[in-house]
Design a protein around this nucleic acid. Sequence first.
DNA 1: CGTCGACTTGAGCCAGGTCAAGTGTAGTGG
DNA 2: CCACTACACTTGACCTGGCTCAAGTCGACG
Lengths: 229, 229
Amino acid sequence: MSAALLAMTPEPLERPLPTPEPEAMCPLNAAFADSQALRTTVDLGDDLFLAGAAADYAYRVEAGVLMSYRLLRDGRRQVVDFHLPGEFLGLEAGVDYTTAVQAITPAVVAGMRRRRLSALAATDVRLTGALWAASVRVCQRSQDHAAILARQSATERVAAFLLAYARRVGSLDDMILPMSRQDMADFLGLAIHTVSRTLTQMEGSGLISARSSRHVRLVRRDRLEALCS
Amino acid sequence: MSAALLAMTPEPLERPLPTPEPEAMCPLNAAFADSQALRTTVDLGDDLFLAGAAADYAYRVEAGVLMSYRLLRDGRRQVVDFHLPGEFLGLEAGVDYTTAVQAITPAVVAGMRRRRLSALAATDVRLTGALWAASVRVCQRSQDHAAILARQSATERVAAFLLAYARRVGSLDDMILPMSRQDMADFLGLAIHTVSRTLTQMEGSGLISARSSRHVRLVRRDRLEALCS
DNA sequence: CGTCGACTTGAGCCAGGTCAAGTGTAGTGG
DNA sequence: CCACTACACTTGACCTGGCTCAAGTCGACG
């Protein structure tokens, strides 16, 4: 555990990706690559699992994009995070999942029993470290997210989101946003209208350009960065 | 998705602590009880460590209350969490701490090298599990916190905070809040004035009674609960 | 070409932020 | 024992960013 733990670089929303380590090197990827991991496709809009369900499986996103979310008692929805290929789901769960996970594009995931993962981890220190490190990363992301939600203005939130997402997909210029405006809004703690207006303003002032509503290009990254106080 | 609505119980902040297992039973407590853990006192207002420092140590709070926080680039402060006796600090860090930790009352902590903790964990599966579980708990708390920050009104936030804090200290009726109004405000993502006004209103409508500004009594827990949508 | 869902845009309002005094209350020194 | 200071907290007045409500507009698909 020590080595993997110390080698870890928890990645805040907006920090260069911590060296997406060579697939072969990451014990977690290795675990999911083995024959016991079973691939499932998830249709657009379908839930992979629901909040409150027994957290028996962990998943690796093989293709597509998913979104984890919670529903509040009054029906409001809080999007916790988006999940891109290569990322893991459910590692940081306790006994039950605390979020639901839904596909926002058609997706493929590799699922693995968490018991089996635990069993493997019991004999593989590097895997243990990787599991812990994965939780740490989720934790950091969530704290970064909280900081944005607590204090930032609508413009700052949207700018931070665009930059973070661009960084995650490794996009150099333009990118497709797979999520709806509502998904973004529920992630950023804003009304859908505010997200829409903010993007329109940003385009108006030349920060971004939008080929279509889900296809944007970050024209002035520097000025967007400047917005993320 | 429809089913998710029914399944969900996204109790923010206040989910029952995941079995505060008997001290003797928890391998983490055992680890910190050993001779290698060294006790330190932290004066009120002093930092135990700063954000960005090398995360060499993990700590267990022995006495007093501490607070973890981040400073944003523009000087705004985000309080990430409060830490009561028996809780751990720094377990979920990566290479560096991402928050600073400050004592909001005089405090005593037991510190332990994380390398040593890792070494112990390498030969003790139960300790490994406990470490992981601790990260998971931090992660959940942080997601709950994010949900509150994203969507709740000032009144909902304050109510959720009071109830969660009461539950954590196990208070039946009244309790001392060790943190300043500003600390609360920075935790809840509100202006200090809003926190103050909200508490005044709550007292006005009989939800709480305040013997002094930091000594409150939850008079109508039921109605406070009702506020946490 | 019509329909439907996703998105945009406008108008008005209000919760909560800002600015600016006040009111305790705990030290501290005379 | 009483000023005097300092800091934490409260309160008021006002303003504004973002929410709500209510139409549009756009694009995909039959």
